[in-house]
Design a protein around this nucleic acid. Structure first.
Lengths: 338, 338
DNA sequence: ATGAAAGCGCTAACAA
DNA sequence: TTGTTAGCGCTTTCAT
């Protein structure tokens, strides 16, 4: 391993000067020495020791990314929770700023707090955390925290998310305009993101004077096995009862379309199906899924951007940011009247 | 931040003793002091400083996970490359050993080498690296490297993968037994994993005396847009020409089934389709995809296991490990004769 | 069984 | 513009 000291000796200068060159402190070094040392630096393949930097400078250049993992033992069985593309974008954005991403799955905010302390992370991004856990995390860490896709009663932790309510509204409006009168909104919970999407559905229905009995929130089991059982029992009934089923995620929508196909239920002739997210599966299923499109990369990009605003002490930072979503019309919703 | 020194003062012992307690050096500390200090440790919420540990001890407790990323700019556009579940399992396995995962996407082995040096990682796992890049990485790093899903001419870097050839064989055999005589193997390249799968197909065909003209390797474009164009031009022809199309990945198989549905091509009546991997999409598409099942978690688990065998200096370590795969029969392959 | 002291590679305050 | 120096928190001989 080549140390700053080695470079300094080779160049006949002091370690401080080398350090200054490395950090581009142009004010403190003459152009000549700058050049000379830069050359030696590359010649000798100098790489900094993060351990020493962390210890001496107090800056780790680490961003901790905390992904919620309800059960460490069962990680294989369930859920999309964190998206491939978000992780990739996150790393990319972090690395572009010359930082590094330490990814960790946790099942309690305390784990995250300890993790942040051990590594002296300079910032934290959370995925899939509930509001309370984000708040707890933020309160115990001195470093900035940016949550993704969380909702707070009182704005307490910086957040980047989607216009979930707008998305719910958009889809419900479309469904109504297509002539659907009985609309079921399907999700596995009624908090956070899904709650907002449902709220959006409600307000569209109110606006368009859809009678209250015509709109319902159907809660399905989050666990695959249980959900399958649920469908066995109720899918036929539900499909007959509603004109359109709006699932809170594409994943569930695609799954439901498959289950319906098994039962000979025609989509969209017998029942329309819509999703939310616009993931890969939405394009690949048949009929193609009509859904709400979100920009996952943009979400990651903005989250990292906001985090670094905090780290760099930018003055006015909005605590929350909701990215716009758009309606993508494909083939899974029947147009009954135009 | 609480330091060892603080604990030592509180306990009225030396930092050395505290350090010994932390590391469980029972030989060096009396039971009494052990207990006393352990109590203070938890009372005061001591968390170690990794920076100091890295510097002093030379061990970082970091495992670098390097995922191949052909083009950093275009990360949004393409490819599954790294799987969700593998990343999750990797992190879990690493964390269970009290290590941490630094995930980094690279587009050259040099990036990986530098990354490993900066962080003084204790081991490296690569995803999606070609053989040459793995070899280059290993040659420049003193720490152990375990690649996932790579193939080497001469065994040069430790690897964990699947019995890809066996999988190819298994599926081809099944296809043949189902009465298919013209089999197309479809992938976007002919190296590494896909090459092996194709080899498996070949040997099954030879074994079962399928005439050579009946078996072909069809190379499709890896880029979505190009592939779509390719299908526009050739999918009809191909579907008519072959009895069965065996795709090297479920992703491509599911996509093809959708494309076929658009063209009114009946699967499996007109052409059978098979995949490889058994991912989520395989169960969700209709007809359900007949495919080769792999255990992604097991792959990650074994990779980490092997890496730590190296780190801990276990004697005899197999350089390569191929996990078994199984045939999963669903509905996308027609049984012409039993 | 316990402690003193040196030093890991780097940064930053201060001196020159 | 450049150099000297004192740590950062921890591990690790080597004494005791």
């Amino acid at each position: 391993m080549i140390r700053i000291k080695d470079i300094a000796e080779k160049a006949g200068v002091s370690p401080t000067t080398v350090s200054n060159v490395i950090h581009g402190n142009r004010k403190k070094v003459s152009k000549n020495t700058m050049k000379k040392i830069e050359k030696i630096l590359t010649e000798m393949d100098y790489v900094p020791s993060m351990g020493a930097m962390m210890l001496a400078g107090g800056s780790s250049r680490i961003i901790g990314v905390l992904a919620w993992e309800p059960d460490r033992k069962k990680y294989h069985s369930e859920g999309p929770a964190f998206s491939n593309i978000v992780i990739r974008s996150l790393e990319s954005e972090i690395y572009n700023r010359n930082y590094y991403m330490l990814l960790h799955f946790v099942s309690s905010p305390e784990e995250g707090i300890q993790f942040a302390a051990i590594w002296n992370v300079e910032g934290l991004i959370t995925l899939g955390f509930g509001a309370k856990d984000n708040v707890k995390l933020q309160s115990k860490c001195k470093v900035p925290v940016v949550s993704i896709d969380a909702y707070y009663k009182e704005q307490q932790v910086a957040n980047v998310g989607l216009d979930d309510r707008g998305g719910g509204y958009l889809m419900a409006e479309y469904l109504i305009q297509c002539g659907h009168e009985k609309i079921g909104f399907v999700s596995d919970n009624d908090v956070g993101v899904d709650h907002e999407r449902w709220k959006g559905v409600c307000s569209a229905c109110k606006e368009y004077n859809v009678p209250e009995e015509g709109v319902k929130h159907i809660i399905i089991p989050g666990e695959t096995h249980m959900r399958r059982k649920f469908y066995e029992k109720y899918l036929d009934v539900i499909s007959r009862k509603y004109d359109a089923l709006f699932f809170a995620s594409d994943y569930y929508a695609v799954e439901a379309i498959a289950e319906m196909a098994d039962r000979g239920i025609q989509v969209p002739e017998e029942v329309s199906v819509a999703g939310f997210d616009d993931n890969k599966g939405a394009e690949l299923c048949r009929p193609r899924l009509t859904t709400i499109h979100q920009e996952a990369e943009a979400k990651a990009c903005r989250a990292v951007g906001k985090l670094f605003d905090f780290i760099r002490g930018v003055r006015k930072i909005s605590m929350t940011e909701r990215l716009p979503v758009t309606l993508v019309i494909r083939d899974s919703v029947l147009v009954r009247e135009s």
